[in-house]
Write a protein that binds this DNA or RNA. Structure first.
Lengths: 149, 149
DNA sequence: TATTGTTATACTCTATAACTATA
DNA sequence: TATAGTTATAGAGTATAACAATA
């Protein structure tokens, strides 16, 4: 079988474990989100709304990188679950302010620490405090490099 | 704004940079895959088939974690693009052997080094050879921990 | 004219259940 | 009976284009 002569390439040495680690972690988190009856896209919107006083569809579109027409359905489903509300914006009657309800806030408050509590042991049994600091530093460097053109 | 008292949690210190690094890398890769007219799920299947002499639907189902009924459609679309072929298995007439065509092999061959060539500088300017080895080791440990129950 | 959000439409992913052909 | 794959069905995500209301 053909190879690409990339064995001495640092790129692949890091990329593959990074992808696999991400996927292993994500699988756990994903199951948790779905067990609450949410999809990842719906949870993304809740996370974006968290800590704000509401966002418009255009603002959500920018932060989630979704088309605004795609958001309509996602917001519909969150609204039908009672987790967000649409409010009129007095200043601009074209806009809607999308805001977490009390139930939405409660769900996030319940979900987030539960997720952390569940995931923490997987991290702690694998990494020392020193490992954590090193890993964080290297990942931030890599992230920033990939973000910059 | 409320906080969760998780500042001293190694979990978040690593998780956030890991997710952000993954997303920064994959924004580039995802665009590349879609520019070839493929979806991530389709490319996953191609990547699983690469280097094999063909796999059955059940084997693909296991490696991609998709329901076998979901794979039917994905394989259909790859087949209609001429990238994979279904072959009968003489030993067991219930099974299908799904295999990359020449075009599928060519696509992977074209895509993969192009991706590597594009991504490599982002890695190399951020990490020394020593960094690469450390990062790889820590990510593998984390991955394995998250995979194990 | 330009912008905000929705509708209309279409495609893909994904799952479960029922079915068929085989083993 | 059990297994491999497909079909049927359904829900969700995603995009583009067209539209109504408003700016």
């Amino acid at each position: 079988m053909e190879t690409y002569n990339l064995q001495d390439d640092s790129y692949l040495k890091v990329l593959r474990p990074l992808v696999e680690a991400y996927q292993a972690i994500f699988e756990v988190g994903d199951r948790h989100i779905r067990s609450m009856g949410l999809t990842p896209a719906q949870f993304d919107v809740i996370a974006e709304l968290w800590g704000t006083d509401g966002l418009t569809a255009v603002e959500l579109s920018q932060s989630t990188l979704l088309a605004k027409a795609s958001l309509t359905g996602i917001i519909d489903r969150l609204e039908s679950k009672g987790l967000v509300e649409r409010h009129a914006v007095p200043r601009d009657r074209r806009s809607m302010n999308v805001k977490l309800t009390k139930a939405g806030i409660a769900l996030h408050r319940k979900c987030f620490p539960a997720q952390a509590k569940m995931m923490r042991p997987y991290f702690e049994r694998a990494l020392s405090q020193h490992d954590v600091n090193v890993l964080q530093k290297l990942l931030v460097r890599l992230r920033d490099s990939c973000r910059k053109r």
